[in-house]
Design a binder for these strands. Sequence first.
DNA 1: TCATAATCCGTACATTTGTACCAGTAATCG
DNA 2: CGATTACTGGTACAAATGTACGGATTATGA
Lengths: 216, 216
Amino acid sequence: MVTKPVPSQARSRSRREALLRAAIGVLAEGGSKAVTHRAVAARAGVPLASTTYYFKSIDELTEEALRLHVTERVAELEALTAEAAEGGRTVEEIALRFADALVGRSREAMVAQFEVYLEASRVPTLREPVARALLAFEELAARALAALGARRPEEAALAFVAILDGFALHRLARPLDPERDAALLFDAMASLFVAYAMDEDEFEMWRARFRRPLAG
Amino acid sequence: MVTKPVPSQARSRSRREALLRAAIGVLAEGGSKAVTHRAVAARAGVPLASTTYYFKSIDELTEEALRLHVTERVAELEALTAEAAEGGRTVEEIALRFADALVGRSREAMVAQFEVYLEASRVPTLREPVARALLAFEELAARALAALGARRPEEAALAFVAILDGFALHRLARPLDPERDAALLFDAMASLFVAYAMDEDEFEMWRARFRRPLAG
DNA sequence: TCATAATCCGTACATTTGTACCAGTAATCG
DNA sequence: CGATTACTGGTACAAATGTACGGATTATGA
């Protein structure tokens, strides 16, 4: 049994998946130190031995769970991208949908996503799916920005995704009033829209104001 | 020995601190599951028993290490805030210093900071120092923005800190070319500056462009 | 200087955890 | 239907880990 094949029986496949989802849940609740065979098995409602039957080690289980999580994220986002491309919506609407898809998830899902980011900085195998996920996020933003004639839409897209993740991370670390938080995020997104929609000359003109020294 | 007092001897205090710093290092390298008594003691170069002598449990050790980390961060930032308030600098210079202080740290320090954010979403004791740290970051940004006559400087500051942390998080998860990354971040910060420096009316005028529907 | 408290550190031990084992059951395929 | 394979799940056990213990050493203060 050098490499474990994908289970052939339906019930078995669903068990395997249940284990992966349980692992995400445990991770979000208690952090990576809480992800043990026993905790995952208990949450998935399967016997302990199932975990070692389906996965070579606990690390492999965790890693595959994280991969599944980002892969599903990408699929969602790709569906949304296709929908946005149909046209007939305002940028603001798209921005809201976009923010919601990226950052309007359950606390659990957001914690898991950020755990993936951090884990990717340590585990090379996770970098590729994480990079794909970020790219999918950015592509959606870039598409909307390009349709608007924004300056450097691909680069602006990086800024959008960054500010969304930044807000989400801060919200986890320091919860604010949800309505205020949403309003602030929306305002920040609108601001980015405005600045990136200018052409280079216009932008440079505004920017010159910030090259002057400040009075203390 | 219900509560452990602060050590009275100098050597002892420095050992205790060495343990806390070692814990941060271990955490950044291997995640929270790597933070064990033995790993921390080995990294700090002290015997295993020191860890239980100074700390009631491994969780307490971890938590205090994280608290120390954010507290030091706040102190750095407060020093920088004072320096920025002296005047005679351009906003761009301040922005660069600000970005550097927040996000230009070692990979290790950044990973640790984000681990704190996630841990704060689970451990209530961490919320207060994390909130103080975020506030310190935001205050520095708000001060510069206010000096510039920016619209709603406190709210704009939230956006700045969010975009900085977002970029930093993405950089960890998916390293880009460092020069390109820095240029993108700088451009994004400049864009936010521009948008938040407009007055409400001007901003609304620009924003109207984004209320129109998009062509697919 | 002496007594008392603080600190040190090797070691022991119970608990938790990862992982292997294997007898049994269910599915699959010829 | 029979045999072969896939899966199940209880249990065992070695390794890692958290934590306690207690005697040796060092600082502190009267």
